[in-house]
Nucleic acid binder design. Structure first.
Lengths: 242, 242
DNA sequence: TTGACTAATAGTCGTTACGACTATAAAGAG
DNA sequence: CTCTTTATAGTCGTAACGACTATTAGTCAA
């Protein structure tokens, strides 16, 4: 078999198509992820990634944006970055029926507290490190999303999506350090970022105290470029995930 | 709406889930892609990417391997690289019904001639440059696949998937030049590749004439590593696709 | 057999990038 | 006032990289 010649409706097994969202943010210097507590079986009481069904008139991207708005109240926040991660289609990933799920990664700066949606007991930002174990195959989706974000930081200006519209280089550096879990040399980081054309541009005459302590830092905005040249590689790893 | 509470079968609109394959190879120094000519409406007589429905018991990956075997006769070829690209879910991408398609990219070295499958008029390797226009949204899928392969060459040892088990550095370089569409300096390419630990390993005592002309080249095998450190960046581009 | 021609391999040179540092400046806390 | 904290400036040696030139080892055509 390859393809029913006429596409007869229901001549083949129908699939449910859902979206799952791995939404990251930085809170108090730690990477957090948006999770919902399931209200019903299976996995009642377990934490899971937010998500839901793709409606007949929606693309997966549209469904992801709608679900994100419903779960967190962020509809069109300024620095909203949404990216398709991959699709998970193993039979048996949902014990009830055949569900194919398109996973997305989203990054938000300084988000509001989420309010629990329809069938979730509650929704909350939880530290990434303490997130496991999750329902279904969401542990794997979350790990894949983290890998992807870490890799994207190297080659794109994605880090600015974690920051407010105007930010200091120290804040930007903390994004890298938090996601990668490594410390970076501050002067070298500064040199690299400023030497990459289009990564950040200075806000003329503005300065902000980063919580009040230390010398006030200059403010920057995200630049015009999305791809970093040369890339900002993380220090000394031997093997990264492909 | 977010989610029907009970997952009642057919309580929501069912989707057809398919896979589409962008299979690349190198023939006569040019990038070729595997295409099928559609035998029926819509787009009868147009070229399209090979693909088909995901069966109820399959994952998308399994379906992709099955379709690839059916269309080309390559079942478990040694250097078969299969990677999920992304999922295309826009409503209306198939005029008949709602179809969500998981796209894959595959690379094969020196493939056999394909034989036309079930509902395809014929299957053939066609040069990438002359491939457009294709049926459905396959132009976009193919362009995305090409972008992805080009980017993967920079950071992974993917180029060896285009080569036979034993290859010369000249052949490896031609992979980069063909996919990227740029000429590379031969001594510098050689230095970079040999300086990257685990990329290639020499085959002791073996040498091959690359078509008979010139000095015989040493043979290499693919190394143990999948991720290149440091990356082999393509020369002087200002903006790449994100 | 001899002299193009071709492709592989070796090596050089100057510039830039990068990691590890040290030093200075500007704020708040006690 | 001084200690602490954070931002910013700059230095230095090494490694990487782009642009070359040179040599070697084959085929091919006269």
């Amino acid at each position: 078999m390859t393809m029913p010649t006429g596409y007869d409706k229901y001549a083949f097994e129908p699939f449910a198509v859902t979206v799952d969202l791995a939404v990251f943010t930085l809170r108090a210097g730690a990477l957090h992820v948006l999770l919902v507590e399931r209200g019903q079986e299976p996995y009642a009481g377990h934490w899971a990634l937010p998500g839901g069904f793709v409606l007949p008139t929606e693309s997966a991207e549209t469904a992801a944006r709608r679900e994100l708005a419903e779960e967190t109240g962020l509809s069109d926040v300024g620095g909203l970055h949404l990216e398709q991660l991959r699709t998970y289609s193993e039979p048996g990933r949902d014990p009830r029926m055949r569900v194919v799920s398109v996973a997305f990664t989203a990054l938000v700066p300084d988000p509001p507290e989420p309010h629990a949606g329809s069938d979730a007991a509650q929704a909350r930002w939880l530290p990434y490190d303490t997130a496991k174990p999750l329902a279904f195959d969401h542990d794997r989706i979350l790990a894949d999303a983290h890998d992807r974000v870490g890799a994207r930081l190297e080659y794109t200006c994605l880090a600015t999506a974690f920051c407010p519209p105007e930010f200091t280089l120290g804040e930007l550096q903390r994004v890298y350090e938090t996601v990668w879990g490594t410390a970076l040399d501050r002067p070298n980081f500064r040199r690299k970022v400023l030497a990459t054309p289009g990564f950040v541009e200075p806000v003329p005459g503005a300065a902000r105290l980063t919580g009040g302590r230390g010398k006030p830092a200059a403010l920057y905005r995200a630049g015009a470029v999305t791809t970093l040249h040369p890339p900002l590689l993380r220090p000394s790893r031997e093997g990264r995930p492909a």
